[in-house]
Simulated assay, not measured.
Amino acid sequence: MSSIWKYKYFVDVIESKSFTKAGNMNYVSQTAISQNISSLEKMAGGKLVNRGKGEITPTELGRIVYRRAKEMLAVEDMMMKEIEQLRSREVTYVGIDSAINKKMWMTYEQIYDPFFLRAGEKMECYKIDSKIGARMMKKRELDIFIGYDDNELLGEPGIENQYLTSSRLGVYVGKNTSIPYGALRLEDLKGHRCYAAPHYSCSVQREACRRLEGDCDFIEVRNVETMKLKVEFNDAFAFVDSRYFYCNDGEIRSLTDYEKDCEIRMYYPTNCDKKNVHRFMKMLKEKMES
């Protein structure tokens, strides 16, 4: 136990004039109060309290210890307040998967501007590739990463995740595609190439690929940006989040015979002590659900 508690117990005994009341105030037994004050008397080299006639009063030595103990407790209180102020001014670093579109950024700003920025609480937000986001999370360079199911982060020691939102799976095609217009069935995709970026989990649809096996070429690419370009310039398609996918020159079609959801999750360090991390995640989730 920190020695500062000995001084607090002593101050409480002097001010309440009771060992029992001091124990109740600190949720400890009267014995614990007595033991700590005895330890304090040994350190001070003399008796600190008089217990005559049923009244607790400080000795001359006790009055010195009492005055200085009050000062120490005041300094500790000031220190804790300054620490709390520092924590409240800490920068919270947020990463958003670059595959996620402006709807998420607008939601982020609707929370950050009125509730954090105006209160002087700093956040820095980055649009980053999911692979880079996973690496930054592991190095503790991000406090929050908003992205899809990520095999590098799910189950990673020291990193937790929370469900944020979900939407239906769709099909991304180029504007000049020969794939039929409007809502699609998997059968409509036959004869076309399918591109997938493994770090963008929405694009990897094994069940759909099995149903299209022999009728489509399935090609893996390194990242989402390459996937979009390949789709747009090769009359191809990719499976994407129908609501939050960041489009370029293509468009997203709905699927009628393959009902899958795309989940967006929030990843964060298990033992994060920045109070704004959990506050922001709670507000973001509530905003997405409203």
Rank of each mutant, 00 (worst) to 15 (best):
C262D: 06
R253S: 01
Y27N: 15
T31E: 13
C125K: 07
P114S: 15
I179E: 13
Q110A: 08
E141R: 10
N50L: 09
E251R: 13
K42N: 05
I64K: 12
D241S: 12
Y66F: 15
S2M: 03
L184F: 08
F145K: 09
G120P: 15
S2C: 04
D249H: 12
K190D: 01
S88V: 06
N50S: 14
E60I: 10
T92Q: 10
A119E: 15
Y200M: 05
E187V: 13
A134W: 11
K230W: 07
D217W: 01
V11E: 04
E55G: 10
D143I: 04
G191N: 10
C216Q: 06
T59W: 01
Y195T: 08
V94F: 13
E109Q: 07
N151A: 14
Y7W: 00
N276L: 07
P180D: 05
R87I: 11
G158C: 03
D261P: 02
G158I: 07
S34M: 14
G250Y: 04
K8Q: 11
H278I: 05
M136P: 12
E124Y: 11
D97F: 05
K131T: 14
F245V: 04
I128W: 10
M283C: 02
L255K: 11
N36V: 00
S201C: 10
V11R: 08
R63N: 12
L212H: 13
I219L: 13
E259P: 01
L164G: 03
S242C: 08
M137W: 11
V94G: 13
R243F: 10
L61W: 00
A196K: 11
K138C: 01
E289W: 03
